[in-house]
Design a protein around this nucleic acid. Structure first.
Lengths: 120, 120
DNA sequence: CTGTATCCCTATGGATACTG
DNA sequence: CAGTATCCATAGGGATACAG
């Protein structure tokens, strides 16, 4: 029933892996180089960043352009498909931001209740 | 920079774990019992379903109600907070559905190109 | 019926070091 | 600069069996 909504091998509802959404938001403002992406992403290790970028590239969301003149230079940018993802992604981020406090509060009171139960 | 957007411990941008989004969509149409949820979710094992439900409950997105009269009977339903998540979730699903073919095509041609490179 | 308990396997992601 | 290579730790998810 939900097969077509969420094949685990291609799960856009989760917007890809841990860094995918963040990368897309970085590229939202224009092309970025490999090293330019590392900084805002909390110093993600190169291996992991490469993994995520390859995955986005594979899904046609990001385009990679390399030149070698004057040292290696690689730029990543959103494809039109990638750019089309920004709208739902922003909606999700806006929702999260709007309800952030509620989420944290719910969590805290749930955990608090658990402690009570356990101690009794 | 992105800390407040995506703490890995509470990552609503990914709509929770593998089953969370699917569960929410099941509950969208009204309260469901534990066993009623197992069927549409491709026969997810009880352990995993319990895990996901607990996680949603902890986040204040789902409410659990249990009665014991005439055998165990437990119902899960969306809280207002959980219901508010449907909008961005639907947006994400709609995007995925709309661009599904493009995603698959991009993937296929990426993999195809890889094979070419490797064989050369 | 609604879960727990146990075991297990893989995928994800990170640290560190090295290369073209 | 833009990655690979290697090793490793953990968590997520699943199979199966059992319990209240």
């Amino acid at each position: 029933m939900f097969d077509e909504l969420c094949p685990s091998s291609l799960n856009p509802i989760r917007f890809g892996d841990k860094w995918a959404a963040l990368i897309v938001r970085c590229l939202e403002q224009g092309p970025r180089r490999f090293s330019e992406l590392r900084v805002p992403l909390r110093r993600v290790t190169p291996k992991v960043l490469t993994q995520s970028l390859r995955s986005l590239e594979r899904g046609g969301l990001v385009k990679r352009t390399a030149t070698t003149e004057g040292g290696p230079h690689v730029e990543y940018e959103l494809t039109p498909l990638g750019a089309s993802m920004i709208e739902p992604l922003d909606a999700a981020c806006a929702w999260a931001a709007e309800h952030w406090d509620e989420l944290l509060d719910a969590r805290e009171s749930y955990d608090h209740a658990l402690v009570q139960d356990t101690s009794v």
